[in-house]
Design a protein around this nucleic acid. Sequence first.
DNA 1: GCCAACGTTGGC
DNA 2: GCCAACGTTGGC
Length: 154
Amino acid sequence: MTKRYWLIKSEPEEFSIDALAKVKVEPWTGIRNYQARNFMRDGMQIGDGILFYHSNCPEPGVVGIAEVASTTFPDPTQFDKRSDYYDPASKREEPRWLAIDVRYVRKLVRTISLAELKDHDELSEFTLVRRGNRLSVMPVTRAHWDFIIDLEMQ
DNA sequence: GCCAACGTTGGC
DNA sequence: GCCAACGTTGGC
């Protein structure tokens, strides 16, 4: 099975790369977008690479590397009335929302900012930098993955 | 805090 | 099924 690559967004005030480094494995819950869910369900395989992206913060950008640590399972927060992610329309027999486990791999030696990513023509087709993109889980091509990782040491 | 871009909801 | 209204995301 060929390894695939992904990018997931997280608001560092909610859950940062440092928080992931501390817990090592985190259930990635609260995804409430069908396209993002389908990427997790139909695309993600254990061991796939993940670019960990900080959004909604002073310097949005890629800050670390993680990996897919489980296949999808029903997101428990959809059934939790006290959760912000509670979905009264979702039934236990037929869960609408799914989660995966994300495992920490390493922090990048520096943040590769969104502004920097936008500067490179090689990444012009990358979903993240396309106008209007709001996906919190998206696929990354091998070529884009390699290019971004190479930027780290420049 | 503003607001563009999108997704979702619900009336019809 | 259409589409206006509304809510959310997330950069700036």
